[in-house]
Design a protein around this nucleic acid. Sequence first.
DNA 1: CCTACCGATCGGTAGG
DNA 2: CCTACCGATCGGTAGG
Lengths: 192, 192
Amino acid sequence: MTQQKTRREQIYEVAGTLFSERGYHATSMRDLASHLGMQGGSLYAHISGKEELLVELVNQAAAQFDESLMPLREENLSPEEKLREAMGRHIDVVAHNLETATVFFHEWKHLSPEAYKKVTDWRDTIDGLYRDIVREGIEKGVFKPDLDVKMTAYLVLSAVNWTYTWYRPGGKLGARQIADQFADMLMSGLRK
Amino acid sequence: MTQQKTRREQIYEVAGTLFSERGYHATSMRDLASHLGMQGGSLYAHISGKEELLVELVNQAAAQFDESLMPLREENLSPEEKLREAMGRHIDVVAHNLETATVFFHEWKHLSPEAYKKVTDWRDTIDGLYRDIVREGIEKGVFKPDLDVKMTAYLVLSAVNWTYTWYRPGGKLGARQIADQFADMLMSGLRK
DNA sequence: CCTACCGATCGGTAGG
DNA sequence: CCTACCGATCGGTAGG
């Protein structure tokens, strides 16, 4: 019962690989086609153009983050548990979608204005999610009262986002373990 | 006594702006030339080719980091002070060289193999610097004994490197203040 | 999905 | 530093 991939999906997949390795502009449609065993012009029987590929990959990544993180807003967890869980899911999405995540973080500047705006809006939403968790933690007295909400959210986001630059599958630690270690250090600090 | 900039330096400067905004491959030599008020072919009277620009910008950024961070190894500071100081200098370099730092973090994959290797070696050196500080802190009993040195260094590096994505000059906080806030949170944790 | 082709643009050079 | 040009390659299309 192996899922049958449409040719279109195969194209997206190879585009994800190449765009993440070389970047969007350094990948030609002929490169892409040859990796799929076809001629450059044949791609256009399946897709409308190069930008469609970038838009699709970026949307795929954003959708993975959204599906994983957004439901957290409604869940009944303590702020500390919620922050830990958000970090776990966030790194999990990066780890299991390394190529699209890399394209997402690296190539979104090359999108057309409309798609570009969607990404900046999305980023604001994720910022908001983390800031809300921090704010709630302060209000409930579990986080330090003098934390700067924005800076705290940046610190957490740095940790989870930067993983795409160094995480490689097959390492000793899985995504959740990395997130737990980061969360432990962030919660209680490095100092003895 | 305003420093007189050579034409060559002006070219690097504009290349830094354009490469950081649009990316290396999305910037044409004619784009670059027109921003300098000259014709595309005229650039080659001053530089040898497009890649030289990328190599130079990446080297400039690496040199700034090195000059600022490397002397720290010899300084007689407690591990905590040393970590805080490293973060301060690191973010300071990013903040005062935003364009070259962005090119450095974003475009180094497009370097030729030799220049590429220099960057990965450099990155290992910086990793080593932060890991040594963490290790020293554990050995001297000022950091928690059960810290994972590698993960701890990744966490710190995430915070200082990721700044290039969100820091913009003119904000309320200067580089040192950002670093201090990050260091405070990392040292003593978010939990009350 | 291929062949053959389009106009545009690329990095770079020659000669002045 | 400009004019004029080079071969190569780009994204994309027509017709089959």
